[in-house]
Design a binder for these strands. Structure first.
Lengths: 233, 233
DNA sequence: ACAAAAGTGTTGAGCGTACACCCATGG
DNA sequence: CCATGGGTGTACGCTCAACACTTTTGT
């Protein structure tokens, strides 16, 4: 099929920075490129937007093609758009990047158009890997956005199950921020910040130690005062 | 000229939310649309990206076409992209929105392709005006971004001259946030936050009252602790 | 019994708000 | 001399970082 236009031609794509926590490491969903350009390199899941498709819907579709995630419970936040004239050697493209946070890392599905997909630790990707296109910059922006969102929104609760313990929530902060937090002070701060968490009324035993109470997200749009990643601990 | 492509066709545009302060009101640069669609309504300055043009350069060019701003001293920050399938009745477009802050409101130039351009108070635009396309949403996002940036960056200094008094800076916060701030506490906070302002060593008299000392921006990337718009004052 | 984890108490330091107060000018 | 705005001092309250301590489990 060939399309025509009286305005300069752009192909519009979406790329998704999908983050999760696996084995105490912040991981991003990546696909290994099968064909040129950048064959064999890791790339963010993404692709072309359909002619009548909303941008957000396109991002959701691309994410769904790589993981069997139920579309309804993923919240996608727009990161930024990338449109350097030479970012794709095949032609002029503008990519709209999105951030998604998933609990429990659903296994990627193999049989899509991409050669293979997997969750990879972001530290390795950013330090040691050469990524396709400008995906290093996009991934970096996604991670930084997530780190900032933990400070003043309830984003951390999207990394864990609907019912979670305070310790599980603390683990999210520790992994994403890369620093240790004081368990006692964290507990007080989280439970006293209006709208952050709500008691469920149940307790669970995970290993030795006193049983932990279960909470769920309290619905707050903004946490105030925030949990500053620079001083909080 | 007719362009062809094997991928779905999108036209990519840029729209600029250019803010300044005039007569103690936060104002945005707007152009009145001459032709359809939305003829006669106010719209943000913007237009199509050229085939080999960087997105930021396109935003700068569109801003330059409406005001005689010297390209070098404007910092443009990307806001977000808007790509609803029906946002432009003429065809599928994706618009990348940018935020610019200008001191001293250079007079808009008349003779461009737009029928007329002018600085309009954002309060009026958001409360009472019907704007073209989805520009109300974009303008609203730009204003909100500016309000947030005042809290933890030096963005306020871009609203004033290179050399400014603390009172002039305070006026920026008061106008953008829409609330009064305590002059004494503001002075202390601004002068003691590392990297926010640097003494110039001169004093000026503007009307009655003790002469005010001149400062310049101190170069800080982030202000910590921030000036919270909810509690600071 | 012991280690480990959950959660609470306590204390001292620092910051922010409110507001009184002094300084330096124009009229 | 007074009004106006620039800038500093002071006191009270609040939050937070640090860390001791109690509670409740698994082994």
């Amino acid at each position: 099929m060939v399309y025509t236009s009286e305005h300069p031609i752009f192909a519009v794509t979406v790329d998704v920075v999908a983050l999760t926590i696996r084995e105490d490491a912040l991981c991003a969903l990546m696909v290994r490129r099968g064909g040129e350009p950048f064959a064999g390199l890791w790339a963010l899941p993404g692709g072309f937007v359909e002619p009548d498709e909303d941008l957000r819907a396109a991002a959701l579709r691309e994410l769904h093609e790589e993981t069997a995630i139920s579309a309804a419970d993923v919240r996608l936040e727009q990161l930024a758009s990338y449109g350097e004239p030479d970012r794709d050697p095949r032609g002029r493209t503008v990519s709209v990047a999105w951030l998604a946070v998933l609990p429990h890392a659903p296994e990627p599905r193999g049989g899509s158009d991409a050669a293979s997909a997997d969750w990879r630790p972001v530290d390795e990707l950013l330090e040691a890997e050469h990524l396709a296109f400008d995906h290093r910059e996009i991934l970096s922006a996604g991670v930084e956005r997530a780190r900032a969102r933990l400070e003043y929104t309830g984003l951390a609760t999207e990394f864990v199950d609907a019912h979670f313990t305070v310790a599980e929530l603390r683990r999210v902060y520790e992994v994403v921020w890369g620093r240790r937090l004081d368990p006692g002070n964290f507990h007080r701060k989280v439970t006293r910040t209006a709208g952050f968490v709500t008691r469920v009324g149940e307790f669970v035993n995970r290993g030795p130690g006193r049983p932990a109470e279960l909470f769920r997200f309290g619905g707050a749009q903004v946490l105030y005062p925030p949990l500053s990643r620079w001083t909080f601990g």
